[in-house]
Amino acid sequence: MNSRTFSWTDVLFLIEAARWTLLLSAIAFAGGGVIGLATALARTGPSRLLRSLASIYVEVIQGIPLLALLFLSYYGIGILGINVSPVLAASLALVLNAGAFLGEAWRGCIEAVPRTQWEASASLALTRPQQLRYVILPQAVRLAVPPTVGLMVQIVKATSLASVIGFVELSRAGQMLNNATFKPFLIFAVVGAIYFACCYPLSKLSGRLERSGNGSRSPVKGF
């Protein structure tokens, strides 16, 4: 194959692919959010069984590479006899991954609401769901905003690994373009720049929210 030149149409091609990155991120965040909330509630809840299950889930997910989880999801779905679409496999793995990290962060936020708020609301005869809904979660949500925005950055970046099971998002598009043009320096710089353009505003926002005292301080973590 002869290398051709890298042009503006290629940049457009990458930007088109970035839409899939964002879509996959949205799926991961939405699904992960649901699982994360369930996990956080289970870990702070009264049921010993649910507490253990939720904490095993978090420990296990945080103890395996996302790449391995992607492969497991891809081949696991295959075994079930369902036609494996990369987007399904990638969504499953990313949702499970995001759920653990969001769940852990949100558990911290729920626990950061003073115990006395539980007592005050209990002594007013509120049920546990009512305590959560009207007293605890509204306060936890405020604390949760900065770390959640920070985790959104992690999710966007994590979607790049969906490329290894053949899902064509931004990273995969970059590899394909590189195979056609042999301009790796330029292409991966542009790919990186597009990711940066998506993530940097979120990172800044998260940092600003945190500094404005509007949330709990969380150590920066990610990969």
């Binding site: 006395t116 708020q117 007592e119 005050a120 609301s121 209990a122 002594s123 007013l124 005869a125 009207y134 007293v135």
Partner: peptide, 14 residues
Amino acid sequence: RQDVGIVFQQYNLF
């Protein structure tokens, strides 16, 4: 608890 109210030292308002 509907019949017994408690007020705390640290108020514990929401």
